[in-house]
């Protein structure tokens, strides 16, 4: 490396903030490095070990991965997780956007009241919310939801008690619990849309729906792209809902990847298998995110 080249590199470094940039990144590096990346790497090492936490761990190569991949329940868990993700995105992705656009057309106090009401479910602690919905989902005729359905002439539904309807029931609650946060984020982003754009579109003769489609949505592009990715990752790692609602039942219909992972770690005490499955899931999500960001890059940059 020549002196000139290194000097110009130094200049570039300085122009981008140099030391001060690095200093500003220190909290992130320390906190993530010490409390996130280090334990994560150590955990990944455990996927190649068998360890009872008493004696020294023994290295077992890929045998934990082989064990996990040979588990007949893994296929079920993957399919269930994909099914949940599909349903959760199908309902949980467009709903907050529509809700945010609709609420944004309200004015003054009524707008604040509507966004407050939409956010209320988020205030309920997740475990409380799930236990609450479990009471509502009582599948006898005296269950709350079944009573309401009876008022409009619909017979009692099995809700969580049937392999077919258990997952959709879980998705319904998850959508209810998660929509508020997303709605608020979209609302905040909509507030940033420049009013001149609406006025210009209106002068061009665009109707309300057309303005929403051609002005509001494009303005939300970057937010939508990142929100969808976060929802995808969150849905793939769904745990509390199936765990507390059904424990994976009936007939394993709601065993998700994380429920299976939980069973490895805490029912069987097999951290090797649990961390191996965790690593496999992480690799899948990393690949998914990479493809996703690549595919959406052009659209979100344009």
């Amino acid at each position: 490396m020549t002196a000139a080249a290194s000097a110009s590199r130094l200049t570039r470094w300085r122009r981008r903030g140099g030391l001060s940039t690095l200093a500003l990144a220190v909290p992130t590096l320390v906190v993530f490095g010490y409390f996130s990346w280090k334990p994560l790497l150590q955990g990944m090492v455990m996927s190649f070990q068998k360890w009872n936490f008493v004696s020294d761990p023994t290295w077992v190569g890929f045998s934990n991965f082989e064990y996990v991949l040979a588990d007949p329940l893994l296929g079920t868990a993957v399919l269930n997780t994909l099914w949940f993700t599909l349903l959760a995105i199908l309902f949980g992705f467009p709903l907050p956007i529509l809700l945010a656009v609709a609420v944004s057309t309200l004015r003054g106090p009524s707008r604040r009241l509507a966004s407050f009401l939409a956010y209320l479910p988020v205030i309920v602690p997740p475990v409380v919310a799930i236990l609450l919905w479990k009471v509502f989902y009582d599948s006898s005729e005296s269950g709350l939801f079944n009573r309401i359905l009876a008022l409009v002439g619909i017979g009692a539904q099995p809700w969580l008690n049937s392999a077919a309807s258990a997952m959709p029931s879980i998705v319904l609650e998850a959508t209810w619990a998660g929509a508020g946060t997303a709605t608020l984020i979209y609302l905040a982003a909509i507030t940033g849309v420049r009013p001149e754009l609406y006025e210009a579109a209106e002068l061009d003769g665009a109707g309300i729906v057309s303005r929403a489609w051609h002005v509001t949505l494009p303005a939300l592009r970057t937010v939508i792209v990142i929100m969808l990715l976060l929802q995808l990752i969150g849905a793939t790692q769904v745990f509390a809902e199936p765990f507390l609602f059904t424990g994976g039942g009936p007939q394993n219909a709601t065993v998700t990847v994380l429920v299976l992972l939980y069973r490895y770690a805490f029912t069987a005490g097999d951290y090797g298998a649990a961390t191996a499955l965790g690593v496999l899931l992480a690799l899948f999500l990393a690949a998914l995110s990479a493809v996703y960001l690549l595919v959406t890059r052009r659209w979100s940059d344009s």
Binding site: M46, F53, G278
Partner: peptide, 20 residues
């Protein structure tokens, strides 16, 4: 690197995090 921490389920780092 920050995004990557979202990919890994909490159980993987449970014991090391506690030791940390």
């Amino acid at each position: 690197a920050i995004l990557a921490t979202l990919f890994v389920p909490g159980v993987v780092s449970l014991v090391p995090l506690y030791l940390t």
